[in-house]
Design a binder for these strands. Sequence first.
DNA 1: GCCTTTGTTGTGAACGTTCACAATCCTGGC
DNA 2: GCCAGGATTGTGAACGTTCACAACAAAGGC
Lengths: 369, 369
Amino acid sequence: MAVTGPTSGQAPPPGDGAQGRGLRPASILDVAAAAGVSYQTVSRVINGHPNVKPATRELVLAAIQQLGFRPNRAARLLRGGLARSVTVLTPNTSLYGYQAALQGIEEAARAAGFAVGVRVVESAVPAEVADAVTRAIGPGGSLIVIAYDQAGRMTLDAVPPDIPMMAMVEAPASDPGPERPWVWLDDRKAAVEATRYLLSLGHSTVHYLAIPSSTHASQRQAGWREALEEAGAPVPAPRQCGWTPRSGYEAGQALATDPAVTAVLCGNDDLALGVMRAMHAAGRAIPGDVSVVGFDDMPVAEFLTPPLTTVRLDFAELGRVCFALLLALMERKETLPHVRRPEPELIIRESAGRHQLPRGSGMTRAAGT
Amino acid sequence: MAVTGPTSGQAPPPGDGAQGRGLRPASILDVAAAAGVSYQTVSRVINGHPNVKPATRELVLAAIQQLGFRPNRAARLLRGGLARSVTVLTPNTSLYGYQAALQGIEEAARAAGFAVGVRVVESAVPAEVADAVTRAIGPGGSLIVIAYDQAGRMTLDAVPPDIPMMAMVEAPASDPGPERPWVWLDDRKAAVEATRYLLSLGHSTVHYLAIPSSTHASQRQAGWREALEEAGAPVPAPRQCGWTPRSGYEAGQALATDPAVTAVLCGNDDLALGVMRAMHAAGRAIPGDVSVVGFDDMPVAEFLTPPLTTVRLDFAELGRVCFALLLALMERKETLPHVRRPEPELIIRESAGRHQLPRGSGMTRAAGT
DNA sequence: GCCTTTGTTGTGAACGTTCACAATCCTGGC
DNA sequence: GCCAGGATTGTGAACGTTCACAACAAAGGC
């Protein structure tokens, strides 16, 4: 009995003055009746079709206003139009990189009049991933997959080929041709820059803390190794961590016991934060005893103590670029616009400094700043 | 000419074996033809209707599998069903509170089989807000408005009364009856606790840095004032800040010049972070010279130097609760389930300590930890 | 063996919109 | 004054699904 049912019965009395509230929302037909024109004319007005007499248009507009008419999206979609919507499939919404990417996508999508959906894909079980993808696909909709880790990569593979899709990945798989619906940051270059910088400060080598990766040899790790080898520096075993400050803290506790460790490159800023905390707690000064560099440049990095030297990775911009490409993909086929992908940028602050004791040992106090 | 048009022509040849790929996605009719039953039987199978002979069901299921059939959501919606989708209207996706709320909502929604949309409402211009709301409303869909600031409050008011909606607000407007579709955290209590704690440490008063608020007298500010007055402590003028660490840094620079400032309560952790940085830069030790307390307990708070004392505000849980209420609202009318709202919790770490010099002045060095 | 009941399947209509095409109304040239 | 041609408006059909109801088959009571 409740207040549900606008099911049975005829359409509301046409031409009948005001509200029409409570029951079924006004349709194109109600507007047509109210304005004394045909439904097709109403359709033309709401779609901005040119061939409508101004006077008629006014009439229809007034009726729309009066009835509070909003076009029914489902009906439009059913007829076959583009949905003007994207769903973002991501493993996470709170970690900085994912979150910034989502923000960029949302901005660009909103500017283009697109609705954006979010769906977190937690599992890496193939059946569950497939189910998540299926549910995320709406009629006429499109997808952006954030595929920085294994689950993401699996998600990517589960998307049917006829769905318009873009993906943010760690690196292109094989051919980096412009046709691939992928977008990525130059992680390798970022890592090379950071490592070279630390080396230039006099550190004999640089230790690396890895975040989870979609591939076995991540680009950041590869860049780090490359820079080390190019300088003829020893390559310590990288240490696999998670994403969180806590994970960095734990790794930092271990690293702090080894006096040979004077420079640590961390897979992201959260890790770096944890490492700095652990070092501080262990009585190792930063940057006096140990230099720490991160990736991302998240907003808090600048205000840490000490301010974090890091490689800025503009995920928000990458998200915007990604959406722009998706849009192009949906509108024309074949030819994609040339968009500039954001370049990583080393931001030098205070968490990395000159190596104090070239080779000796013993206690040392921070100099410098 | 391009690769677009599955428009003209008849339906694909029924009973025709395999794929049917490339063109129009398979419909209920295609499945029916393939399985040799009527479309209605197919409908019954995909909706789990009981009265279908098991053998028939198998037949249909096989055909669905083979054709890769996915029910068209638009068509279902058009017929009048619930959309099982929520759109979150939020002023922001990157600030911790909003982001955590979104995360909680997404989790709960996904568990309930709901799709979730996000739309940022940037403007506070009435017309633009109304437009944003209109666009966010899909057929059969529902809304969650995050209304902690002025724009959010305005958004809330722009939602038509017939749309199922929930809102996360700073505090209930007038009557806190259980019927309001609102959900909130006990900000006042949180602020009282934090302020009392600082006072208990021997500080003669507590300075307050305000984040933007939806009301003129925010709950956090009210709680702070209340605790101060209850203790007979002087009430310094609160300082209006933004949301970001930078904003906190700037406020901190000003505060650092005043030796009378020994305790600062910050509207959120980002502000606290900035204040700590500014104090440190100005040579004021934390917690030796100045105690700092924040709100939120964002993930990095524990790993700052020093670790931040703060009041944990569980926005993720609040998001889950909010969604649960929305769901109840959509399913039955009238009676809402009794859900427990998360309580604020003071997390004592190291950024606040005993006041060192009861009243005197001069230089001081940090004691304690 | 007939009639009622229950289970299973099929047919028609409707949801709100847009596309294709047909119909009507002007406007102006001859 | 008649007709070509453009502008404007209207009609029919279709998109894929579900609801209401009808039809048919199977099963059980007498």
